[in-house]
Nucleic acid binder design. Structure first.
Length: 578
RNA sequence: CGGGAUGUAGCGCAGUUUGGUAGCGCACUUCGCUUGGGACGAAGGGGUCGCAUGUUCGAAUCAUGUCAUCCCGACCA
């Protein structure tokens, strides 16, 4: 490719609407162009990167025994009603109507479609197990698209689905996909961590997310992990063992059960300071709205609620903390006037009450009694009337690994892939069955496996850049090498550069020659910004038969003959793509 | 959906307070000059100032409405 012909325009400045590095650099370097919020054109450079990620994914999926197909973007409402997700998926589903006023949606994921296809074809146990996948654009009406390609409304995804007869089949395929995913991301030059996670709207029990670890804002998930063993989990799924803390009030003088005045202690900090007791001996009561109904959740004062865990614990599909008005309304209905900070479950009728496991250990603690500016001290479990316990505590760094007991660490991660064990979540309601050896109809035991192709590309930029621009891993770089003749009117330089360009092209190397009549500074800046892994600079030293070989990753520059440079490129590319 | 901000040329911005018919830098075209880290000079092309309605002799500027975009939060594979 000739730089003079390449459909690209690099910018001098970062776009004003970009926040994270990958978004800024991909726009500045001419890879993407926004059409509307969360929707981008993939310009030729970007498309080359995406195709490379797709092809690596294809190769590994095919090698793992999966088969590629392509399902429709446009989907009828009926299938979604069948699975129950027309309602359950909520506003994320991009809905539309056709000219006959029939309701449709644009696919955010394809469990419904693949299940309906499979049930018509996979009728016998002889055809199982089967693993099918596709790579295509997905649509999700995100509340707030942001971070460029990291969270779009239209994005490219690889989604795969496995069909088996038994849980053993599923376990085997799940392991197969886990290994495949590790290989895919390694080949893309992206080290990932497989972390346990909540399975969210997709459903199912076991699931893992593949996270690219990053310290930046672009990492939207908190990941807890252990250096001493392989434990790693998303914050919505992490569990831990707690360090020793004061959980018996007697240890800090709360011997007698009594009501005490605690004026203006709206927060745990204020209450703890006022009573001069540790936060771990205070039991707080929080009001949440789960599926539009209020619930009460008790948790140890020094700990935070993890909302997804709480949501799962109460079997809800939607949860949020109650507003001050909603708390007031709840209190009034039950004849109280207590504000947040003084709430108790005692005397609240017709409401789900649940306590975190941390509360089980507490004795002689401090708790609200639905009266403003008062608390009960020396209280015990019978004073809060809790029957249901669950773990819905947010894990914190420094707590101990549930597997090996060493302290956990926390980091941010970008989720680039995930795998779920669906079981019969879709096959049962959609009556997707096969006949077993005895001629009995049984639902498939399914798994599903996703990779965000566009997100992987953006994550690669987040993981590989410097102040000059992108530093693509060789396997997914749009081109491998750029040849830069320094002087526009030096015939010798031009000749040598063109010769190198031709020889590299002939050897199948993806090479660009910067044949523009620009000053060298412009060419170097663009080369660094776009992120060619290698650069061959043909400058003054050509008089001595030498060119300069530059490695983007390290900035290392080596003088060598043109032939040596060509061989070095071929060697390095071959090595990297092995 | 709550809070905040912004819409003026492909990109980055000024002009709006105080109404007078649109400007700067980059990019683009032509010519000259220059060629090892985003040179310079000259001459050009490109915008119904997000949209609608209103006020006015006159609106980028004032008013009302509306749409879009971004940030924080909530939410979310």
């Amino acid at each position: 490719m000739r730089m003079s012909k390449l459909f690209v325009q690099t910018l001098r400045e970062f776009p004003s609407d970009a926040e994270v590095v990958s978004h800024k650099l991909l726009v500045k370097a001419g890879y993407i162009k926004k059409l509307t919020s969360g929707v981008y054109t993939y310009l030729p450079l970007m498309w080359r990167v995406l195709k490379k990620i797709e092809n690596i994914t294809r190769e590994e999926m095919d090698n793992a025994g999966a088969q590629e197909l392509l399902m429709p973007f446009l989907q009828p409402k009926e299938l979604w009603v069948e699975s129950g997700r027309w309602e359950a998926y909520g506003k994320e589903l991009m809905r539309l109507r056709d000219r006959h006023d029939r309701e449709m949606c644009l696919g955010p994921t394809h469990e419904e479609i693949i299940t309906s296809v499979a049930r018509d074809i996979l009728k016998s146990y002889k055809q199982l197990p089967m693993n099918l996948y596709q790579i295509q654009s997905k649509f999700r009406d995100e509340v707030r698209p942001r971070f460029g390609l990291l969270r779009g409304r239209e994005f490219i995804m690889k989604d795969g689905y496995s069909f088996g007869m038994t849980q053993e089949d599923l376990d085997k395929e799940y392991k197969n996909m886990a290994d495949t995913y590790t290989r895919i991301f390694n080949r893309c030059g992206l080290p990932t961590k497989a972390v346990q996670s909540d399975s969210g709207a997709i459903g199912g029990n076991v699931s893992h997310e593949y996270m690219v670890i990053t310290d930046t804002d672009a990492g939207e998930n908190d990941v807890f992990y252990c250096d001493d063993c392989d434990y790693a989990a998303n914050s919505n799924h992490a569990v831990s063992n707690l360090p020793k803390a004061v959980v018996d009030g007697k240890e800090c003088g709360l011997i007698e059960k009594k009501i005490v005045d605690t004026p203006n202690t709206k927060t745990i900090e204020e209450l703890s300071d006022f009573l001069k007791v540790p936060q771990s001996i205070i039991c707080k009561c929080l009001v949440y709205i789960a599926d539009k109904k209020p619930i009460l959740a008790y948790i140890r004062g020094d700990k935070q609620v993890e909302e997804t865990k709480l949501m799962n614990a109460v079997g809800a599909t939607d949860i949020r903390i109650a507003t001050a008005e909603e708390i007031e309304e709840l209190m009034q209905k039950n004849g109280f006037s207590a504000r947040a900070g003084f709430i108790s479950a005692i005397g609240i009728k017709d409401i789900k009450i649940i306590a975190d496991n941390t509360v089980k250990e507490m004795k002689n603690f401090v708790v609200g009694i639905n009266e403003n500016d008062k608390h009960l001290v020396g209280a015990n479990l019978e004073d809060i009337q809790v029957k249901d316990f669950a773990d819905f505590r947010l894990v914190e760094a420094g707590e101990f690994c549930p597997k090996c007991g060493k302290p956990l660490k926390v980091t941010r991660g970008i989720e680039v892939g995930n795998i779920f064990q669906l079981g019969t979540k879709y096959s049962k309601p959609m009556n997707a069955v096969y006949l077993d050896k005895d001629g009995k109809a049984k639902p498939y035991v399914m798994g599903c496996y996703g990779i965000g192709i566009t997100r992987t590309a953006a994550a690669a930029v987040e993981a590989h850049y410097d102040e000059h621009g992108i530093k693509w891993p060789i396997s997914i770089a749009p081109y491998h090498v750029i040849v830069v003749p320094v002087s526009g009117n030096d015939e010798k330089q031009k000749f040598v550069a063109e010769d190198i360009y031709k020889k590299l092209s002939d050897k199948g190397i993806e090479v660009v020659i910067d044949d523009r009549n620009e000053r060298p500074g412009v060419k170097f800046k663009d080369a660094d910004l776009i992120g060619f892994p290698f650069r061959i600079t043909v400058g003054k030293t050509v008089a001595d038969g030498k060119v300069e070989f530059v490695t983007r990753e390290t900035g290392e520059k080596v003088e060598m003959t043109p032939d040596e440079a060509i061989n070095t490129v071929v060697e390095k590319i071959t090595e990297a793509l092995k």
